[in-house]
Amino acid sequence: MNFEGTSREKFFYHNTLLCLIRSLQDKNITVDLRNDSYVCGQLVAVDGFMNLSFCKAVYCDTQQNEYFFDNLFIQGRNIRYIHIPETMTILGSLTNELKRNKDKKLSLKPEVKSRKVTKALKQHMKTVAELDN
């Protein structure tokens, strides 16, 4: 299943550790929030802006009051830390997540370049070939 979203979300997915957070889907995790409270629960979904959706979540506020939710949504800007389970290998999870979500560009149409770009590319290749001589 490929990562779906806007081009900006795909950029964040491939150029930040968002793919590590995405590999935590369907696992129970703890998230510390910016207001010193925290949420524990099963991570259901992560989008390209690190917004998190939980099911069966427990929200604990700063006075240690606990609130139970069937579904809970947290905006990415409110997150301070995401605790990675100790049983999970980070490097292995990153590798598996990126392998699973590789873009298959072979099925897409080849990119058509303008004549100007094609001419500039040929000129560049000619210049590079002359440098080798």
Rank of each mutant, 00 (worst) to 15 (best):
L131E: 13
R34G: 14
H14L: 07
L121A: 08
L98W: 01
K119E: 07
V31P: 01
R115T: 12
P85T: 08
R77K: 13
G76R: 01
N28C: 04
Q64G: 01
Y81H: 13
Q42H: 04
L18P: 02
L20M: 05
G48L: 04
T62I: 15
L108D: 12
T89L: 12
F3L: 05
V128P: 00
E66I: 11
L91W: 07
Y38C: 05
T127H: 15
M1L: 06
F69Y: 15
P110D: 09
L108S: 13
L24M: 10
I79Q: 03
G41H: 05
L72T: 07
T87V: 04
S93H: 02
K116I: 10
E97Y: 11
D61T: 03
K10G: 03
E130V: 08
C19S: 14
T89Y: 04
K109P: 03
K109A: 11
E86H: 12
S7E: 12
V58R: 12
K56G: 06
R77L: 07
L94H: 01
V46F: 01
D47M: 04
L24N: 07
S23M: 00
T87F: 04
L43I: 01
N51M: 02
E130L: 12
T89G: 07
R80H: 13
E66N: 10
N51P: 06
D132C: 12
Q25S: 09
L98D: 00
Q42I: 07
F54D: 04
H14C: 02
S93K: 07
D70V: 00
V39A: 04
E97F: 10
L52H: 04
Q64A: 09
I82R: 00
S93R: 06
E111F: 15
S37F: 12
V117R: 15
E97T: 02
F12Q: 07
T6F: 09
L94F: 09
N71G: 02
M1E: 06
C19R: 07
S93G: 09
N101H: 15
G92I: 04
K113I: 13
V44D: 14
D32K: 10
L94P: 03
L43N: 03
F54V: 05
I29F: 00
E66K: 14
L18Q: 03
N15I: 02
L43R: 02
N78F: 08
E130Q: 10
L20N: 03
R34L: 15
N15Q: 11
R77D: 06
M1Q: 06
L98F: 03
L106H: 15
K99R: 08
S107T: 15
N2S: 06
A57S: 11
S93C: 09
T30M: 06
V46W: 00
F3Y: 10
Q63F: 12
S53H: 08
E130N: 11
